[in-house]
Write a protein that binds this DNA or RNA. Sequence first.
DNA 1: TTGTAAGCGTTATCAA
DNA 2: TTGATAACGCTTACAA
Lengths: 347, 347
Amino acid sequence: MNIGEIARRAGVSRSTVSYALSGKRPVATSTRRRIQDVINELGYRPNATARALKEGRTRTIGLVIPPAGNRLTHMQLDFVASVVEAAARVDLDVLLSPSGGGHDRSFERLVSESRVDGVILMEIRLEDPRVGRLQAAGLPFVGIGHTAGDHQMSWIDVDYAGLVQHCVRHLADLGHRRVALVTRSRELISAGYGPARRASEGFEAAVAERGLDGVEVPCGDDARSGQECVVALLRSHPDLTAVTTINEAALPGIERALADSGIEVPYDFSVTGVAAKTWAEDFRPPLTAADVPALDMGEKAVSLLVERIAAPDTPPRHILLTPPISLRSSTAAAPTGRPSRVSRATR
Amino acid sequence: MNIGEIARRAGVSRSTVSYALSGKRPVATSTRRRIQDVINELGYRPNATARALKEGRTRTIGLVIPPAGNRLTHMQLDFVASVVEAAARVDLDVLLSPSGGGHDRSFERLVSESRVDGVILMEIRLEDPRVGRLQAAGLPFVGIGHTAGDHQMSWIDVDYAGLVQHCVRHLADLGHRRVALVTRSRELISAGYGPARRASEGFEAAVAERGLDGVEVPCGDDARSGQECVVALLRSHPDLTAVTTINEAALPGIERALADSGIEVPYDFSVTGVAAKTWAEDFRPPLTAADVPALDMGEKAVSLLVERIAAPDTPPRHILLTPPISLRSSTAAAPTGRPSRVSRATR
DNA sequence: TTGTAAGCGTTATCAA
DNA sequence: TTGATAACGCTTACAA
């Protein structure tokens, strides 16, 4: 079933069918109807591959996700979902490419075989070879996340430094003096993962600014790690009264560890951080947190990309989001005086 | 940059370049090296679109996922991740298509524009129009999940009926007489969602077989719903001593509701179900459950599809998985005699 | 061992 | 208002 077959049955030339479909040239109403009838009858749709070859564009974008081995976080999942959805709204298909672990056939296919009109790169590292690769290929792309140096690229990101700083200030305002940052996994950090690195910066800045005692601990992306991490933290820092985190997957574990130690949030201890809304609202008590608008971000990334595809020589654009901190119920004034938390926990 | 350019620079014909690349015809070593040098220098890779047009296949498969609106469950996410990974291993790209909510441009593009060589259909309904659509289009496909009638299609699924039956029998063996099934959302059920429907069947069968009192409640796919659901259940059925579930996302809420009521699992109450391993292990205490091998399933789905693409006229194959129930710590003998749970909870 | 040329299914230019 | 035809970049039969 192809355009020639339709043309034959409608008794017209292929070009007329093409024009009847695209409307790029007037077609007599009678002819058009005849063609449309045949098309409806046979359920014809033009072959996307042939069209792509002819038009020089695929109407497809690539979405580069972290390799499947490391299970995706909820936030990443929201990115994927919203990118796919937003792309579908403008009739773009999305080709998925798991990448990030070094040599990568799938990513290479994407950039060098003209399979896509542009690429959205998730989980960018501070130094990321894929950025150079895409630039060399001359393929339009945007990052969800951004590199260390300002490479000439469009991106959208969350201002982790600023947000963590806000969180710590909020805790300081409440009288907390010793606070911890529960960050992402050691591997991610040493791989140069931007959000972790930038969260550290914000944390250190705020701690210095307010003269607090700050302790920072890496933590795996799961409940168990969160739990272990907080248990260790409570043991090693008995005077800790607050924690802030950028590790949403650790939140259920953080909740557990505190509950197990007989610590009541927020009266004995405050918790805050930056996380997707669901996680914040699922925390007990509901978490005072900067809600990462992951769904918006995917959508905006698609807009940015569409823009770049349309006008590749336009200067790149950056969107740095600083969502406000939603005050929920997990932060309160630091507990005053002794009995310290330790005695309470063991009483 | 195309094959003609390479040919020109290497001083050979385009076909020679093509053959040098594919190895489908011998090429003199010297010529081959000359060609390879040019290719390396320019970083040439054949245009995938042109190749697809010529070869009549795209080396791409479509993955039809539920629409992004309903946030994907972890299990669904594992399917996606494993499908993408497995496809990448055999050098297939994956085109994502959100579908399921009625009229669907993205799905239609997939099936009727020859964008893909085959389709993996997630979240199949008992009556699913997309199955007929794919069959009419003559596009190879496999389901993760299966319809009610045995349409002529390949699929892989988990035996929810059998597994829930096992779970209930296990509870009955432990002396539980009044048990509940926490299933999926009311919407999913009325939309004809297979796993929910089949879980019901298994539940009813086991309850009848063992002469138990069974109660079945729908529940949204999130912690809060799980919590509300169990709270309501405890109130309406004071003599309930066990619950089984196929709603993994509700597990954290189930855990909370029980803890809040002062119920200790497994001494006062048993919990079991079918869930991805992570969820089961994250439950407190670790959940006795049938672990759904979501990662395997994605991989097997890809194999099935590759098979069907290669031999479309082969009779379809079905894989119904019945993973064993992993005995962890959330089930124990039913509490004996009074004081009943109610009095304990309020004591 | 290599080259020529047809053809995959479109779109769009040029003629009529 | 419509038709013939070239072209997109590739693979592969057929020739040499």
